[in-house]
Nucleic acid binder design. Structure first.
Lengths: 215, 215
DNA sequence: CCAAAAGTGTTTCACTTACACCCATGA
DNA sequence: TCATGGGTGTAAGTGAAACACTTTTGG
């Protein structure tokens, strides 16, 4: 195959599905569009890939610009490239999903300037472009990942209780999880360390705090 | 976010990892490059995405052009976009992997004109660009998929014996598989139908033929 | 002492793994 | 009759799921 450069080129963007847990719900960060097309509709944050910037870097840059966070879990999802997905012309979107923990997510809420909101994943507003498809795919992926890997920890602050971790699983999977089996499974993974601290949180037995090994 | 169109745009290609089983080995289709860079090196088949063509269609088109096959298993793998992956400029490559069965693969070998070869995945020649990385990722994905899904059938003709299917698994996983447990597992999946045919193949008991439900 | 969440073990069931011999055929 | 690959069952082990009560604290 010979590469030539005479082809009309598509624009390439990254779109981000940024998840967090808040108010006992799984949230995604959405931005309200100011211009056409889809004016006033909610959309996933995203933007163009700079010519000398890797896709991963572009995603990390958007993440910082739009959600004000760095150093969070970030993974490429899928590349969407239907010719008509953007009415203005050919735009290929490399989608990423990111997991932001409750602590960092609060930082953003405070410094918010543009119209961006954390919205429930399970009852989202109508989205621009094919962003609903991207969101659905991201949720599907997150559900799979949480069952087979340890990404769940990315949604919690450094110190957490087992009940909090369990809630994360229940919220994402949208089904109750057995407490004893859950603790057994998590502890058997050997990925978390029990700290010599507890958290008192009302009129009941304080919970032991744990931390994830590295992060 | 506002889209503007003043950005210099990267070129977008699709690259294909086309697998087949032959000579008791897992093979990938490689093309010898005629021009610089990487002149004479082997590379994955691929090409530019046309401006009005979906990524999936572009991959299917390349698959037909390069391997002469249509209607085979095709799945998006990952998008590689390091700025320096192509020395001539910014090229973002959406990679796909395809599974071609032994029957169709023979068609191509007969009508071969360009310098394309089926090469062993486990002992490949030095590859151009970052194609080794793409190949490695595709092999990893294929291994996972074959353990959790039924894609294995895509590498066999419509009628096959259980021993042939077992060989496919052993070749891909690069380890021996227990015959009784394998047959039990496959039959329990309820995805194949026993045909009223056998295949005689030498001085031993003929094997029953099976077919996959749909394809 | 009461309310509330934390913490803890055992049994059952399903699935995976290990393993060895007879069968049908062609030469 | 022998060599070759096809075909079959059982027992042991491992991991998942179901399930209820005691502990610790604050009010």
């Amino acid at each position: 195959m010979t590469y030539t450069y005479e082809y009309p080129r598509p624009a390439v963007t990254v779109d981000l599905v940024i998840f967090t847990i808040a108010d006992n719900d799984l949230k995604v960060l959405l931005i309200r569009r100011g211009g056409e097309p889809f004016k006033n509709r909610w959309a996933l944050p995203g933007g163009f890939v700079e010519i000398d910037e890797s896709l991963e870097k572009a995603a990390a840059r958007e993440l910082k610009e739009e959600a004000g966070v760095t150093n969070v879990y970030l993974e490429q999802l899928f590349t969407f490239g239907e010719p008509k997905r953007d009415p203005r012309g050919r735009v290929i979107s490399v989608s990423y999903f990111a997991l932001v923990d409750a602590e960092q997510q609060r930082i953003r809420a405070a410094s918010d300037a543009t119209e961006a909101e954390w919205r429930s994943v399970f009852n989202p507003p109508k989205l621009a472009f094919d962003h609903k498809k991207i969101l659905d795919y991201a949720v599907w992926r997150l559900r799979n990942k949480i069952e087979w890997t340890t990404v769940g920890y990315e949604l919690l602050p450094k110190k957490f209780t087992l009940s909090e971790l369990q809630r994360v699983y229940e919220i994402i999977l949208q089904r109750p999880v057995d407490k004893r089996n859950f603790r057994k499974k998590i502890l058997a993974q050997g990925q978390i360390r029990e700290l010599n601290e507890t958290r008192s949180d009302g009129a009941h037995r304080p919970a032991k705090l744990y931390s994830f090994r590295e992060k």
